[in-house]
């Protein structure tokens, strides 16, 4: 039960969505864009979020696309569910990552956009997008705009008020690159990550973003330089661990020292499995 009232709108076009957002704001109300809704409902139930209107974007055709555009880019609507992305198998690394977020039933409800815009710190679907240099298409009142993912996603998805994520565009070559995905949890398979990495190998170089290691997901050039440098796998793992050492999360899922241990193992694991790819 959500202990407050709000209005519900389900626009059929992007324009309707941004218009109703503006209109509600002008009436002094707090609207939110609503996609899968799982996080909003669970937060609203315990009073961690409050709003006056939910604008459900699942009926907007552009938010539901799953196709290649004329430039051979994969286009994924922000309101696709994680399970739709996994089952389509068009972006195997993203599918794999999405298939390890929450559980299967939840994956039938959680959407790509919802996970990217999540307030929960993990936002694991951004990892494949960061490595694949995806672009985010955002709708605002004055139309559509496209941003490189690493610009608009800095620790979290930074959208201007009133705008919403419509789709993610990814170069087919990147989407089909050889990849790795490792998710480590405390003990239970379905859990928040102690550490997740989901990267690709491009031009002989590994790209390795992380979620769960720090309080936000990230990709670091410094880490990737060490990763792709010479030196034994162990040395590289140690060096990388040292560079992030101070920012490693420490919580009930795992102490920072333990996460550091898991990080080193994971890096060695990635280097080993990807060395001949």
């Amino acid at each position: 039960m959500i202990p407050f009232d709000f209005e519900y709108y389900r626009p059929d076009t992007m324009q309707e969505a941004t218009d109703i957002f503006r209109q509600l704001e002008s009436e002094g109300k707090t609207p939110v864009y609503y996609s899968g809704g799982t996080e909003l409902i669970s937060m609203a139930r315990v009073g961690n979020v409050i709003f006056d209107a939910a604008i459900d974007i699942k009926n907007i055709p552009e938010c539901r696309v799953l196709e290649y555009d004329q430039d051979n880019n994969l286009v994924l609507g922000s309101a696709l569910t994680l399970s739709e992305i996994t089952e389509s198998n068009q972006f195997p690394l993203l599918g794999k990552t999405a298939g390890r977020i929450a559980d299967h039933t939840m994956q039938c409800k959680i959407t790509l956009g919802g996970n990217l815009a999540s307030t929960i710190i993990y936002r694991e679907t951004v990892l494949p997008l960061l490595t694949a240099e995806s672009r985010a298409v955002v709708a605002s009142h004055d139309g559509l705009r496209e941003y490189p993912i690493n610009e608009i996603f800095n620790q979290r998805l930074n959208l201007e008020k009133g705008s919403f994520l419509v789709k993610i565009v990814t170069n087919r070559g990147f989407a089909e690159s050889p990849y790795f995905h490792i998710k480590k949890t405390k003990n239970e398979k379905i859990d928040y990550p102690l550490l997740t990495t989901a990267g690709i190998k491009v031009g002989g170089m590994l790209r390795i973003p992380f979620s769960g290691l720090c309080s936000y997901p990230f990709r670091s050039m410094q880490i990737e330089n060490i990763l792709n440098d010479t030196g034994s796998f162990e040395e590289r793992a140690d060096k990388i661990a040292d560079t992030v050492s101070e920012n490693i999360l420490n919580d009930t899922s795992g102490s920072s020292e333990y996460r550091k241990f898991v990080l080193k193992n994971t890096i060695i694991n990635v280097l080993e499995t990807m060395k001949d790819v």
Partner: peptide, 13 residues
């Protein structure tokens, strides 16, 4: 036809 946890779905949806 797909499983959904009805505690996390608005009736309106």
């Amino acid at each position: 036809g797909l499983p959904v946890k009805s505690c996390l779905m608005l009736t309106a949806e």
